[in-house]
């Protein structure tokens, strides 16, 4: 491979205009110290042209290569099946999310158990139940989304009756509970939290 061709390819890579062949050419030559030096010079030139010249003494690529060389190679055999399983899981959860969204949106018969199951399929970590994408699919509120009383909740169904009534009912329930008992400050805190918008 001629020096010139390589330099052209280097330039193309730097300008983000390299085709696959050029990229391969550069990658295969990148271990060569002369190529690296050329690359470094090109970067300086480019930076100067863009008026962003800094001292380009940091050869991060070399440091990364050294670190990689020191690291034990991962066991390849175990990686294959897990990766494909992972992809499958992602695909499955996307399907579940889509299905769940459609089902919720259509107001099908769906029990809490099913809902919970769908959500847990999507989220492995312990986060509050209502943050799954499935429920967001059916979430319908327009401009008030960020500030409305339902902002952090889940509201399925169309805007209208329930948008007027539900916040009122939620408040009434919370306030009744807060007025009712003194066993702790918890009902008060719930009611106060509902007013925070």
């Amino acid at each position: 491979m001629s020096r010139e061709a390589l330099q052209e390819s280097l330039s193309a890579v730097m300008d983000n205009e390299a085709d696959e062949l050029e990229l391969r050419r550069v990658l295969s030559a990148v271990d060569d110290s002369e190529t690296r030096a050329t690359w470094s010079r090109y970067q300086v030139a480019r930076a100067a042209m863009h008026k962003e010249l800094l001292l380009p003494q940091l050869d991060i690529a070399a440091a990364v290569s050294a670190a990689l060389a020191d690291e034990a190679a991962p066991v390849k055999a175990s990686r294959g099946p897990w990766r494909s399983l992972g992809r499958l899981a992602v695909a499955a959860s996307v399907t579940v999310a889509v299905l769940a969204g459609v089902r919720l949106y259509n107001q099908d018969e769906i029990s809490g158990v099913q809902l919970a199951a769908q959500q847990s399929a999507q989220q492995g970590v312990a986060v509050p139940q209502v943050q799954g994408p499935a429920v967001l699919a059916g979430y319908s509120e327009s401009s008030e989304q960020a500030t409305g009383p339902m902002a952090n909740g889940v509201l399925q169904g169309q805007a209208g009756w329930d948008n007027q009534r539900l916040p009122g009912y939620l408040r009434q329930h919370a306030q009744e509970a807060a007025l009712k008992g003194t066993e702790s400050a918890l009902p008060y805190a719930r009611a106060a939290s509902l007013e925070n918008r």
């Binding site: 919720l104 209502v130 399925q156 169904g157 329930d162 009534r165 939620l170």
Partner: peptide, 14 residues
């Protein structure tokens, strides 16, 4: 329309 909503601990079903 029938509605379901959940705000943290509190659920609302219409």
């Amino acid at each position: 329309t029938d509605t379901r909503a959940q705000l943290g601990p509190t659920v609302a079903v219409s």
